[in-house]
């Protein structure tokens, strides 16, 4: 159960226990407020809790980058399930298998890498939380949510380029990369568009953009069924 707790997390828990021990000692013994008591309490209600506050913040911020965290809201579980599934070959899933960032693949692709990237990412995340609890998503089925949720802004190719710089010979030798160099730079063409590397989460595109020939009407009933490819998420509510 505690397998996800990092060393800093454990240190933090130990500090919290020590602090609690001091506080409880004080509450039980009620010693006079002499110098020793004051100094002990200074640790118990000042220094140690401050350390816990700082450490738990770093641990918490780190935790928000894990795929497990994204999947703690059921409306994201289509995406997380797809990325984890061994048979899945979506672009998102292929980026989940690298041991160095695989567990954080959602974050590395979806964080904002602009100048104010970090706070903007967190603000955006708070928006999701708000919409989840107060915007009705909490009560939506996974199927509905997948149909409804879309990016707020078009995907920024810069996010791919933080890892795939596009400056190496092999990259440049691809004729499409060459001919679209300008458009890719200006985000006029997305790396993940249909004809290029494909959608990162193709399963979520049925009924939306994926069938480019627009043979499938996005209208209600029919849209859910074709999504059942091998890498589609489990049926509604089916938390893995």
């Amino acid at each position: 159960m505690l397998s996800h707790v990092t060393p800093v997390g454990y240190l933090c828990l130990v500090a919290a226990l020590a602090s609690a021990a001091i506080v409880i000692w004080y509450l039980v013994k009620k010693p006079a407020l002499g110098l020793t008591t004051k100094l002990t309490l200074l640790f118990g209600v000042g220094v140690l809790p401050a350390a816990v506050a700082i450490a738990s913040t770093t641990v918490g911020m780190q935790a928000t980058t894990e795929r497990r965290f994204c999947g703690s809201c059921h409306v994201m579980q289509g995406h997380t399930w797809n990325a984890e599934h061994a048979a899945s070959d979506s672009l998102a899933a292929r980026h989940a298998r690298n041991p160095f960032f695989g567990e954080r693949n959602c974050y590395v692709c979806h964080a904002d890498y602009g100048m104010l990237g970090y706070p903007m990412t967190k603000l955006n995340g708070m928006k999701h939380v708000w919409h989840y609890y107060f915007g009705g998503f909490k009560d939506k089925s996974l199927d509905h949510a997948i149909d409804e949720i879309d990016l707020y802004k078009p995907y920024d190719n810069v996010n791919c380029r933080q890892c795939h710089s596009g400056s190496l010979t092999h990259f440049k030798s691809i004729s499409d990369h060459q001919s679209l160099e300008k458009e890719l730079g200006k985000n006029e063409v997305s790396c993940t568009s249909g004809g290029c590397h494909g959608f990162a989460h193709p399963f979520s595109k049925f009924g939306k953009k994926a069938p480019k020939k627009s043979t499938v009407k996005p209208a209600g009933s029919a849209s859910a069924a074709p999504a059942a490819s091998s890498a589609a998420p489990p049926a509604s509510g089916g938390a893995p």
Partner: peptide, 11 residues
């Protein structure tokens, strides 16, 4: 704060 370390979920 300790709970958030043991159960690192949004809330």
């Amino acid at each position: 704060m300790s709970y958030s370390i043991v159960v690192p979920k949004p809330l």
